[in-house]
């Protein structure tokens, strides 16, 4: 069930026009990204997420774990069932989230990490 939901929202995001300017990369929810995805946080906004905790609280907890706008993220690992949960490297720390919550983190793609770059 959650998979079909994710696919729908992924399409929504990819078909949406670029956020600002013509050269801006596409913004997608981190929760729908594939293993190995690297990118930068465009916005942390849980207003589209329903459930527990309330969107404002979910957003606040993500902020407290270091998911702030501008931080670099990389999906390092994912679980066996439904590719869930995911382990995300965010500015030097690894945080585990379920894909459902990770959908509150909106990211844009950056070039895959090359050796020697800062994580």
């Amino acid at each position: 069930m959650s998979i079909s939901l994710s696919v729908v929202s992924l399409e929504d995001w990819t078909e949406a026009p670029p956020h600002d300017g013509t050269m801006a990369p596409r913004v997608t929810p981190l929760g729908t990204a594939a293993l190995g995805f690297t990118g930068r946080i465009h916005a942390v906004d849980a207003s589209a997420c329903s459930g527990v905790p309330a969107p404002a609280e979910l957003e606040h907890r993500l902020l407290e774990l270091g998911f702030v706008e501008g931080a670099t993220v990389e999906i390092r690992h994912q679980g066996l069932f439904r590719r869930d949960p995911i382990a995300i490297r965010v500015n030097g720390a690894t945080i585990a989230l379920r894909r459902r919550e990770a959908c509150a983190i909106h990211v844009h793609t950056t070039e895959p990490r090359t050796p020697g770059t800062r994580r």
């Binding site: 527990v52 993500l62 690894t94 945080i95 989230l97 919550e101």
Partner: peptide, 13 residues
């Protein structure tokens, strides 16, 4: 009727 709580956990080095 209560949706599941999030799973948010730091995986320390």
């Amino acid at each position: 009727n209560t949706p599941p709580e999030p799973f948010m956990l730091e995986l320390p080095d």
